[in-house]
């Protein structure tokens, strides 16, 4: 990549006033660094990944409302987690976390366990139960 070929496309970095560093060669063939505002191929990949996450969140929300899963799964998706990550944050075995996805099991959970989840998701136990969150 030549210095003048370093892409300066519009991207989501702009909102944070952030430029990333790329390596490129100058007119004399010497390596140098150039700041880049973004590059379309990766912006599209990132946008797609975020869309995918949003779709997972919406799907989980739907299933909570249809009583097919518990709000824990919804909050897990909202925080871009999977079961492995969530289990290690709450310090509960994976198979138990999975069980807590069942609405019937979720209803019977003790306040202590609910509080653990609520702390991780940064909501109150009430909000956790009702599928409401701060933002």
């Amino acid at each position: 990549m030549k210095k003048n070929e370093v892409p300066q496309d519009k991207s989501n970095l702009e909102s944070a006033n952030f430029k990333e560093l790329c390596y490129a060669v100058d007119e004399n063939g010497e390596y140098t660094t150039v700041n880049s505002t973004g590059w379309d191929p990766k912006t599209i990949a990132l946008d797609n990944a975020i869309e995918e996450i949003n779709a997972r969140v919406a799907d989980a929300k739907n299933r909570v409302q249809n009583n097919q899963t518990s709000p824990i799964e919804y909050y897990m998706e909202l925080h871009k987690m999977d079961i492995n990550i969530l289990a290690s944050y709450v310090g509960i075995w994976k198979w138990r976390v999975k069980r807590h996805f069942k609405p019937s099991v979720f209803k019977k959970l003790s306040n202590k366990i609910l509080q653990k989840y609520a702390d991780i998701f940064e909501v109150s136990v009430e909000q956790l139960k009702k599928l409401e969150h701060g933002n």
Binding site: E20, L21, Y23, W39, A45, N48
Partner: peptide, 18 residues
Amino acid sequence: NHYLGQIVRMQEEIGTGG
């Protein structure tokens, strides 16, 4: 497509220098 996007992201993510 999701998988392919992930490869490109790993390749070009901030920090790779391109």
